[in-house]
Every structure is written in structure tokens, then in C-alpha cells.
């Protein structure tokens, strides 16, 4: 027992234990992530909300192009697919969810993310400061839709 307490005084055991606890906590958070689906798609660029779409009322796929803010212009959305010379992300919003189909960013991580329909994990495009999140309709809205 005394050996156990002696060990506790050693900083490496405390630090290794901290790391293990943090890692386990992360795993628990990952496994308990919200995997349910939502239908409110929010498109944010550089902190400004550019658009909100309700996937439950979408019957045909919608394509939009998000142009991030430049030094002179603020960010905006174009309807349809418009790959441009500058920076852009083309987003497809369908009844099933939302995905980025094309982007000018170097790694293309946002296109790798695939289709999302859950509030658990968003799609981010760091170079273009684009953030796509899915939310649930609030309870009262759901009631209004169901009944």
C-alpha cells in the first residue's frame, strides 16, 4: 500500500493517468455522439449565417455555391453550380442530407466528409471558413409538422 502511494508521487504516473482519463473520456464522447438525424441545414461562412434549408420539404436536389469572403466582399451564396476562379464550395442539399460535392481547397477534406444528416458532426472547410451544420427542428416545430 505504501508503495502505491510512493508511486503516486511520481509525476509520470499522474501525467500518464491524466492522458488515459482524457483518452477514455474522448472515446466515451465519440461513442455517445448524436447519431440521430436532423433536417435543418445551416450554412455558415466566417461566422455569418448565409442560409438555412429544411431537408424534410426538399424533393429535388438543390445545388448551391458558397463564395467565401474576400478583402473587399463578404461571403455569399449562388444558386446552382458555379465553379469559379476564386474560392468556392459547391454544396448539394437533398432530402437525405447535405454534402460538399466540389471545392477549390487543397486537401478537399470537406468533400471527403460525404453526406451528413446528423447534428453530431458538422462539415468544415477551414481554408474557405465554411461550416455546415445540421440541426433538429425544435419540438414545437415538429408538432406543427406532424399534426
Amino acid at each position: 500500500m505504501s508503495g502505491y502511494f510512493k508511486n503516486l508521487k511520481k509525476p509520470h504516473i499522474i501525467m500518464a493517468a491524466m492522458l488515459v482519463i482524457i483518452a477514455v473520456l474522448c472515446l466515451v464522447l465519440i461513442f455517445h455522439e448524436d447519431k440521430g438525424s436532423g433536417n435543418i441545414v445551416k450554412i455558415t461562412s466566417g461566422g455569418t449565417l448565409l442560409g438555412t434549408y429544411d431537408t424534410s420539404v426538399i424533393t429535388e436536389d438543390i445545388y448551391i455555391t458558397v463564395i467565401p469572403a474576400t478583402a473587399s466582399e463578404s461571403a455569399y451564396i449562388l444558386e446552382g453550380r458555379h465553379p469559379s476562379e476564386g474560392h468556392y464550395n459547391i454544396i448539394k442539399i437533398s432530402h437525405e442530407g447535405v454534402c460538399v460535392t466540389d471545392s477549390d481547397c487543397p486537401t478537399g477534406l470537406c468533400t471527403h466528409a460525404g453526406l451528413i444528416d446528423s447534428p453530431g458532426i458538422p462539415i468544415a472547410c477551414l481554408p474557405n471558413r465554411l461550416m455546415i451544420t445540421v440541426e433538429r427542428k425544435s419540438e414545437s416545430d415538429t408538432d406543427a409538422w406532424t399534426y
Binding site: 472515446l27 465519440i30 455558415t44 458538422p122 468544415a124
Partner: peptide, 15 residues
């Protein structure tokens, strides 16, 4: 990014 939604990635990034 000006969006708190990035914190959804926290457990993945820390791990």
C-alpha cells in the same frame, strides 16, 4: 471560423 460548431470535433482531435 467564428463558429462554435467546430468544437464538435474536440474528442476526435484530442484523441
Amino acid at each position: 471560423m467564428g463558429s462554435a460548431a467546430v468544437f464538435a470535433y474536440t474528442p476526435y482531435l484530442i484523441l
